[in-house]
Simulated scan of single mutants.
Amino acid sequence: MGLKRGPGLLPFLVLCCLGGAYLMASRLGYLDRLQARFFPAAKESVRLSPGDFPAGVAAPVADLASVPLRPTLIGFSARGSAAALLLATGGVSTLDNLAAPPGVAQGVLKAGYALDARAVLFAREDELRQALALGAEHGGVDMAALSVDRLAAWLPALRDAAPRTVLLLGRSRGQEALAAVGVADLASLRGKRLGVYPSGSSYYFTLWALSRAGLRMSDVRWVDLPSTLDAGRALREGRADAVSGLWGDVALAARDRGGTVLATTADAPHLVATVLVARGDYAARYPDAVRRIIRGLLDAGLSVSKDPAPAARLLGEVAPYLGDPTEAIRSAPPATLADNRSFFGLSGEAPVTYDELFQSASALYQKIKRTAVIPPAEDTRDLGALKYVSEARGP
C-alpha cells in the first residue's frame, strides 16, 4: 500500500514558499518600497535633534576667539542672589534691546575681564526655560540662573541645549514663603485652596512644606497660578486660601487680609539653590568666557557682601516685588567661593550637595509624574572652569 500525503502538506509547502519570497523581498528592499508607496503613514519616522550628538562637535578646531564677539546673554528671574549678576553686568537688558543697560557705568565683567555680558530678566521661569532651550543665536540666552529643582524638572525639555551647571549663585534663606488667610498652621491646609505657580521654585518649596506637615498632595485643592508674581494678588482677591511665592509679595498680601506666613525657606535654607547653567555648545566653544564669568560673579558677590547698597539699588529698580532690596539680598545672598567648593564637593562639607539636591528633586518629580527621566547628577554639571578658578585663587 503506498503512502498517502496528509491534508496539511500542501499548505505547509505554500507557506514555506511565501516565507522564502518574503525574506528575499525584504533583503532586496522591495517591501520598503511597497510600504512607502501604498502605506506611507505606516513607515516609522525618526526625528533627529542636536541632543543626539555631543554639544561640542561644532566648536572650532583652533581657539579662534576666547570669548564671543557678541554679548553673552544670561537669563534670570529676580532673586536676592541676582544682585551679584546685576553688578557684574551693569544692569538689566531685554532680548528686544541689547544696548548697554542703564545703571552703573560698567559692570565687573566688562571692566575687569573684558567680557561683554548682559543680564536678561524674565518674569516667568517657564519663559526662561524656553530662552535657554533656544540659545542666544536663535533669540534666547547662553546661560540661565535656575534653581536646581527647576533644572531637574526641565532637563528632558532642555535636552537639545545640553545644559551644564557651572556655579552656585546662592541659596534661598527665606525668599520663598507660604502665606495663608484663615489658616492657623501647615496642617490646617487640609482641604484648602493652595495657589502656586507650578513652573517655579516655590512649587518645590510647597511640596517640602506639605511633607513637613504630613499632608498628601491630594489633601489640598491646587490652584495653578500664571506666574510666581501672581501669588500675592491671588491671596488678596480670595482666589486661594493660601499661596506660595516670594516673601516680599505674599507676606504683604497676607498682612493686608489679616493672614500670616506659615513657612519660609529660612526653615530649609539648603532646599532652593540657584545655580548658573550654561548651554553645552556655549561652554564648549568659549571655555575661557565661562571662566571669566565665574570670576566676575564671585568678585561681584564679594562686593555685595561688603557693601550691598549699589547692587540693592539695581535690584530694587528691576524687581520692586521683592520688597526691600537689601532685605531680599539678606534672604538670598550671593554664594562665595567657599560655598561653591563645599556645594560641589571640591573641599569642605555641606549639609546638602549639588548631586544630592539634584538627584532627590529628580526622584520626587518622577514620583509625582512630572518627569520620567532621572539622569545621573554628574551628567548635568561641568566643574572644569570652577576648579580652574578655585585653584588659581588658592585656599
Rank of each mutant, 00 (worst) to 15 (best):
G140R: 03
Q175E: 14
A136S: 15
P156S: 07
R173C: 01
L146Y: 13
R171A: 11
L178T: 00
G139V: 09
G170A: 05
V141Q: 00
R150M: 14
L151F: 11
T165E: 07
D160G: 03
A161I: 02
A153Y: 13
L151Q: 06
L146Q: 12
A177P: 02
G135S: 07
A153H: 12
E176R: 08
E137K: 15
D160I: 03
A144F: 06
A145N: 12
L132H: 01
A136D: 09
P163W: 10
A179I: 02
D160M: 08
A177Y: 02
A157L: 13
G174Q: 01
R150L: 15
R159Y: 06
A161S: 11
D142P: 09
L151E: 07
H138W: 12
E137Y: 08
A144H: 05
R173F: 00
L168D: 01
L169P: 09
S172R: 00
G140F: 04
L168A: 02
T165L: 10
L155M: 09
D142N: 10
L178M: 09
A162C: 08
P156E: 11
R164V: 08
L155S: 09
M143D: 00
V148L: 04
V166R: 05
S147W: 10
R159G: 01
A145M: 14
G139P: 09
P163C: 13
A179D: 08
L168F: 06
L169C: 07
L169K: 03
M143Y: 13
M143F: 15
G174T: 03
S147V: 13
G139H: 12
E137W: 05
W154N: 04
R159T: 09
A131D: 11
A153D: 14
P163R: 09
A136T: 06
A161G: 05
R173T: 09
Q130P: 00
M143R: 04
H138A: 15
A179K: 00
A152P: 06
L132D: 05
L146A: 09
E176M: 12
L178V: 02
L134V: 08
G170W: 03
M143W: 14
R164L: 14
A161N: 06
A136E: 06
R173H: 04
R159P: 01
R171Q: 13
L134A: 15
L151P: 04
A145F: 13
G174D: 07
A177F: 01
L167F: 09
M143C: 10
D160A: 08
S172E: 07
G170Y: 05
V141F: 12
T165S: 12
V148N: 01
G135C: 07
D142H: 12
A145S: 15
R150S: 14
P156T: 08
A133L: 14
L168I: 06
R173K: 13
